[in-house]
């Protein structure tokens, strides 16, 4: 009897899980579907599930905008922001995890609290700073802002990962004559590598998808894929076919990337929560 109840619960949970997954995935699915429709099919009511697929929207998108220019900007900004953020966060998290002071906890919370501020609240000062330092519409400027917005969450994640490394192993390194730097690079980093990888992965995804700052701080030269999508949404009314094609092109790389590395990513997001 108990077993039966358990089985039915399991089936219920499975259905619920699939339901939520499908619900979450539906917009992406519809976007991809729409990208293969003609503009007329895209706005037809009732919406068509079965139709003759066409690549016309893609062709037009490629004709109208230089996809590779935007994609290269996105890759440059994401990789640079992630690399710098990791390089800054590793020593910070190391010192917080292994040499905590009275204020470590508070510092971590304060860092995280900066993520709670709506970005628009600091739009004007950041815009003026970027303008005065000639960083408007440059990959450097956008990378710096992306790096700074993600830094708290990266420090926090690395801190959690480092805490899982037993302190005596680092102390053994110190007894063996390792300097702090050697202790960090030769003992801690190899041990925390899976954690660092999943943190970097998350940072890449966050940077890739970041729209607010890229739309406000870039216009053409450094515009990333988010700006590429946006450029198809407004000027001449809504052309859902082209908009969907552009969106699909913009999210496809990171979607594939995330899919390949999902195991690593899940581990990163739940690390420390379950043990």
């Amino acid at each position: 009897m108990a077993l039966k109840a358990k089985t039915s619960t399991r089936i219920g949970v499975t259905i619920l899980g699939w339901g939520i997954a499908l619900w979450l995935f539906f917009p992406i699915f519809w976007m991809i579907l729409t990208s293969f429709k003609s503009e007329v099919q895209a706005i037809s009511t009732p919406p068509k599930l079965f139709f003759m697929p066409t690549l016309s929207s893609y062709a037009e998108v490629f004709e109208r905008a230089n996809y590779w220019h935007f994609a290269l900007n996105t890759v440059t900004v994401s990789v640079a922001a992630t690399a710098i953020a990791i390089a800054l966060a590793v020593p910070a998290a190391y010192s917080m995890a292994f040499m905590p002071s009275k204020r470590t906890r508070g510092t971590l919370l304060w860092m995280l609290s900066t993520r709670m501020l709506p970005p628009v609240g600091v739009l004007v000062p950041i815009y003026i700073l970027a303008r005065n330092t000639h960083l408007l519409d440059t990959c450097t400027g956008l990378a710096i802002v992306d790096m700074l917005t993600n830094l708290p969450i990266i420090v926090w994640m690395l801190y959690t990962f480092f805490r899982e490394v037993p302190a005596p192993i680092l102390e053994a390194g110190r007894m063996d004559g390792a300097t702090r730097w050697q202790e960090m690079t030769m003992v801690l980093l190899p041990l925390a590598l899976p954690g660092i990888a999943s943190t970097a992965l998350l940072s890449l995804i966050l940077c890739w998808n970041e729209a607010f700052w890229s739309l406000n701080l870039t216009s053409s030269h450094a515009a990333p894929l988010t700006a590429f999508i946006a450029s198809f949404s407004s000027p001449e009314g809504l052309f859902f076919g082209k908009l969907s094609a552009a969106s699909t092109l913009a999210v496809a790389p990171i979607l594939v990337f995330g899919w390949i590395s999902q195991k690593q990513l899940v581990r990163g997001l739940t690390f420390g929560a379950v043990k």
């Binding site: 005596p168 192993i169 102390e171 053994a172 007894m175 390792a178």
Partner: peptide
């Protein structure tokens, strides 16, 4: 590391 000591830890603390 410069005191000329070696330590064996309770948890072994191997790399």
């Amino acid at each position: 590391g410069k005191r000329g000591l070696a330590m064996v830890f309770q948890s072994y603390a191997l790399y």
